[in-house]
Every structure is written in C-alpha cells, then in structure tokens.
Design a protein around this nucleic acid. Sequence first.
DNA 1: CTCCATGTTTAGAA
DNA 2: CTTCTAAACATGGA
Length: 263
Amino acid sequence: MPELPDVESFRRDLETHDLRRRIAAARASAPRMVEDVSARELERRLAGRRFAGTGRHGKYLFAHLDDGAVLVLHFGMTGCLAHAQARRFPSGTRLALEYADGRGLAYVCRRKLGRIGLAEDQAGFVDARGLGPDALALDLRRFRKLAAARRGGAKAWLMDQGAIAGIGNVYSDEILYQARVHPLRGVETLGPDEVRAVHRGLRKVLHKAIAVGADPQRMPRNFLLPHRHRNGRCPSCDRRVASIKAAGRTAWYCPSCQSSPVR
DNA sequence: CTCCATGTTTAGAA
DNA sequence: CTTCTAAACATGGA
C-alpha cells in the first residue's frame, strides 16, 4: 500500500541500510517506467555512485546520490523496495542495483504503475510536480487554512496530491473514520471542531501506521483498515461498513459512526 | 471470462 | 478557476 506511511518505511529502510554503499551496476528493465532520462542513461548515471541521503515528500521517495543528483521513486499501486542477495532479485524487479559488496537493492513494481526518475534536486521536483505540502508537515493552523480554501468532498480533498501530499484511498478512509466524518461531507461545511478532528485523525493515523512499518496486521484494533471490505464490521459499533464511490475510488466507512454527508 | 485493486494523468463536463 | 467523473495505463488475484 504505497501511501505516505509505506513510503516512509521504505525511506527509513534505505536510510539505515543503503547509504554509502558503492553501486557497482544498475539495471532498469522497464524502460517505460523511467522518466526524465532513458533507461540506459539512468543505469549509467547510477553506476559507480553511492547514496548520500534520503528524503520523502508525500508518496515520493528521494535517494540523494553523492554527485548531487536525486533518484526519484514513486511506487504506484503495487511498488515496494526489497533487499536482495547478490543478483537474486525478486520477480517484478524493475530497477536492480548491485552494490560492490555483493548485496542488492530491488525496486519491485509488478503493475508498472510506478515511476523511476532522476532529478536535479528534491525541492525543484516537488515544485515542478505541483505537490501540496507533505501531510505530516501540517500543523493545525496551516491545516485550517487549507480547509478554508477548499470545497467539495472531504475524501477527495485528502487524496488530492496538489492540496496535501501523501494520502491515498486507504488512509483517507482511515483518517475520516477516526475523525467520524463522512467521505462525501463538504469541506466547506465542516465546523472548527470537525476540522480539528480530521487534522488529529490524520496525524494519529499516519504516525501510528509508520510506527508499525505500515503493516496492516499490526494496526491498532480500532482501525477501520482491516475491515474495509464487504462483510466488514465497524470496530466501534459492530455495524456493517458501507462502500460508495468517492473521487473515483471505493470509499469504505461506517454509516453509523460517520456523520451524514450534508450534516 | 469478468470484476476489482493501495495511483496518476488527461480529457471533458458541470 | 475549481471540482467531479471516466478512461487509460499494466498486471494479478478473486
């Protein structure tokens, strides 16, 4: 589930295990996933380099190279990062890095909906992409300002990467569930207390998810996440959860605990 | 075979 | 201008 918590987990993994290793060879085997440069050029630019640091903005992971360039990874719907034994990369590996010490790093993306890019710098990339502020960089005051400038469905707002970066279908459901706000509720109709509840839900959900390494099995019992499917029941009131279409996706929510769309 | 899936972009409609 | 919907992308699982 490559939303902010998943990508943050990948980043931490990269930060603790992959810095300062010499990249002996790189292989980009899905040319259409590579942006900004050709697959060959990317391989050439990675070979011989080391990762000097990591960064993240929303769902984008940045691996800073020791020559100043930045490897940009987006994970689409099914992407992940995995460490590999020498030359034994998992199936679905789209970018394989072989370190000089024999270990390897695999960017795996079965559905090829992710993207691999090379940027000059992180801030410039974020700007050019038109991404909003990272979800975890928002204090209540700033969150209120964003809410005041927004109309339309609450879920669509949270998922709009140009408004707030990092939240996708699953975690927007979770945040609104924790805040007890209906996914279709108009942002302009939210009272100050409700905006605060959404902000609190956002921070609680994302921080908690990061703390458990974005592993669904380790989420708190009061999370909607494991129950967002038909036959799923609300962890709070035990009623059946419901699904509707919102912002082009399936939104799961508890009709009993989450206020009506119109209020 | 059909439907659906954790994401983004684009086109066109309100 | 902002917001919403559908379609496309590529692939696998139910």
